[in-house]
Simulated assay, not measured.
Amino acid sequence: MPESSKIFTYVVEGLSYTVTVYEENGEFYADIAVNEGAMDVNAVYFGDDDFSGSSESLGGPLNMNGARLDGEKVQWDEATELSRPGLGPEGETKETYLQAGDTMTVALDIEDLDEIDVFGIRATSTTTGAGSIKAVSSDPEEPEEPEDPVYGKVFFGEVFSETGEPLGGTYILDEEPDPNPYSVPALPEGTEPTFENYLSYYLSDEMGGNLAAVEGVVFYGPGEDGSQEELFRIAAPEGGFADADALLAAYDDALSGTEDLSGQDLIAALSLDDYAMPEPETAEEMGADEFDLV
């Protein structure tokens, strides 16, 4: 995963693309992704927001002469040729010809993302009216960190009935109820109730959870009436979960296909009516024989 990144966008009639500039393992790259239309990316230009000093330029058809940002001439710090104009015998299979859905990665000779505040692309064979662009993008977006879904409680189940009803295992609540007559475990105060934190607490010395015995994990969140109800569950593979990483991988797989969602929207997308089984909201309403405490 990228350690940090900036996102530049460019949209004109007939063409739109996104450039994600990022650092990965100490190296820097730009992913150029076409969202609509097509273009032959012949050169990339970039620089910081200080437009003083001389500007880098590529000669002939790869120049960015006349490119401006908010009416101001751009001073480029770096310019890199990627290909010569014209699709030639390769046609649409040319490596630098990108159509909607295509992405090309370009290595960048920089030492810090702060060196790039403006990103330019010189492209020909475009689906724009002019057939070529001298595109300038600035004010990069700072990508938002995805919001991890949170849960009201998680059940690490060791025994289930034939119908899937949780019988034996460990419930962990997001917050300890008051009173708590059955001493139901809860996350330490102030802990965000993400699954990774539930799992870490389950495996802690304080809880002493036995992952090898877990047959399945059940996730709960507030239902329409406010009480905790099952959202979805993960069944252990044959032989059980090898370790915490294996369980987290299974959890990530359960979330796959919902990467554009977060928080309650993601939880709603994962809700499975087939497994819905409302649980009591408070510890007083839980029967002591409903679970084994550890």
Rank of each mutant, 00 (worst) to 15 (best):
I7H: 04
T9P: 01
V11T: 12
V11P: 01
G14N: 05
G14P: 02
L15H: 02
S16F: 09
Y17L: 13
T18L: 10
E23N: 10
E24K: 13
A30M: 03
D31N: 14
A33N: 11
N35M: 09
N35I: 12
E36G: 04
E36F: 11
G37T: 10
D49P: 04
D50S: 09
G53N: 07
S54H: 08
L58A: 09
G59D: 12
G59T: 10
G59N: 10
G59Q: 10
R68H: 09
D70F: 12
K73T: 15
V74Q: 01
Q75R: 14
W76D: 04
E81R: 15
S83G: 09
P89R: 10
P89G: 07
T96Y: 00
T96W: 00
T96S: 12
Y97A: 04
G101P: 04
D102N: 14
D102S: 13
T105P: 05
I110Q: 05
D112M: 04
I116W: 06
F119T: 00
R122W: 03
T124Q: 07
T126A: 10
T126V: 11
G129A: 15
G131E: 10
S132Y: 15
I133C: 05
S137L: 12
D139C: 08
P140A: 11
E141S: 13
E141Q: 13
E142S: 15
E142V: 15
E144T: 12
E147I: 15
V150D: 02
V150Q: 09
G152C: 05
F155D: 00
F156P: 00
F156I: 04
G157I: 02
V159S: 11
F160W: 12
E165S: 11
E165T: 14
P166L: 05
L167Y: 04
G169H: 03
T170I: 13
Y171K: 01
I172R: 00
E175V: 13
E176V: 02
Y182N: 10
Y182H: 13
V184D: 00
A186D: 01
L187M: 07
L187V: 07
T191L: 04
T191Q: 03
F195D: 00
Y198D: 00
L199V: 07
Y201C: 05
M207A: 07
M207W: 02
G208Q: 06
V214Q: 01
V214L: 02
V217K: 02
V218C: 06
F219R: 00
F219Y: 03
Y220P: 00
G221H: 07
G221V: 01
P222H: 11
D225Y: 06
G226N: 03
A235K: 13
G239F: 06
A242F: 05
D243P: 06
A244T: 05
D245H: 08
L247H: 02
L248T: 03
A250I: 10
Y251Q: 07
D253A: 14
L255K: 13
G257S: 06
G257K: 05
T258W: 00
T258G: 04
E259L: 08
E259T: 13
E259W: 07
L261T: 09
S262C: 08
G263Q: 03
D265Y: 06
L266R: 14
L266D: 07
A268N: 14
A268L: 12
L270H: 05
L270C: 09
E279N: 12
P280S: 07
T282N: 08
A283T: 15
E285H: 06
A288I: 14
D289N: 13
E290S: 14
E290K: 07
D292F: 12
